[in-house]
Amino acid sequence: MERIRRNIMAGLLASLPLLLTVWVVGIVFDFLVAAGRPLVLAVAGAVDTWAPGVAMILQQSWFQTGLAAFVTLLALYVLGAATTAVLGARVWHLFDRLMARIPFVESVYGAVRKLIASFQQAPAGQQRVVLVEFPNPQMKTLGFVTKVFTDTETGQEIAAVYVPTAPNPTSGYMELVPVENLVWLDWTANEAMQFILSGGTSAPDRLTFGKS
Rank of each mutant, 00 (worst) to 15 (best):
8 I>P: 00
22 V>S: 09
23 W>T: 13
29 F>Y: 14
29 F>T: 14
30 D>H: 09
31 F>W: 13
31 F>Y: 12
35 A>D: 03
40 V>K: 05
43 V>D: 02
43 V>M: 12
45 G>N: 15
47 V>T: 12
48 D>V: 13
49 T>K: 13
52 P>K: 05
58 L>R: 10
58 L>K: 12
64 Q>D: 07
65 T>F: 03
65 T>R: 09
71 V>H: 00
74 L>E: 02
74 L>D: 03
74 L>W: 07
81 A>L: 15
81 A>D: 06
81 A>K: 12
85 A>M: 13
88 G>K: 06
92 W>E: 02
92 W>Q: 06
94 L>G: 13
94 L>C: 01
94 L>K: 10
95 F>C: 11
102 I>D: 02
103 P>L: 08
106 E>S: 15
106 E>V: 08
107 S>P: 00
110 G>Q: 11
112 V>T: 09
114 K>N: 14
115 L>W: 00
116 I>K: 07
122 A>P: 03
123 P>C: 06
123 P>G: 04
125 G>L: 03
127 Q>K: 14
130 V>P: 12
131 L>A: 05
135 P>V: 06
135 P>S: 06
138 Q>E: 06
138 Q>D: 09
142 L>T: 11
148 V>P: 03
152 T>Y: 02
153 E>T: 14
154 T>L: 00
158 I>Q: 02
158 I>F: 03
159 A>R: 11
160 A>Q: 15
161 V>K: 02
162 Y>E: 01
163 V>K: 02
166 A>R: 08
171 S>Q: 10
175 E>D: 03
175 E>H: 10
176 L>N: 11
177 V>F: 09
180 E>A: 08
181 N>L: 10
181 N>D: 15
181 N>P: 01
183 V>Y: 02
184 W>H: 12
186 D>N: 15
188 T>E: 01
192 A>Y: 09
193 M>S: 01
194 Q>A: 15
194 Q>E: 11
197 L>R: 01
198 S>V: 05
200 G>M: 04
202 S>K: 13
203 A>T: 10
205 D>H: 12
206 R>L: 04
206 R>T: 13
212 S>E: 06
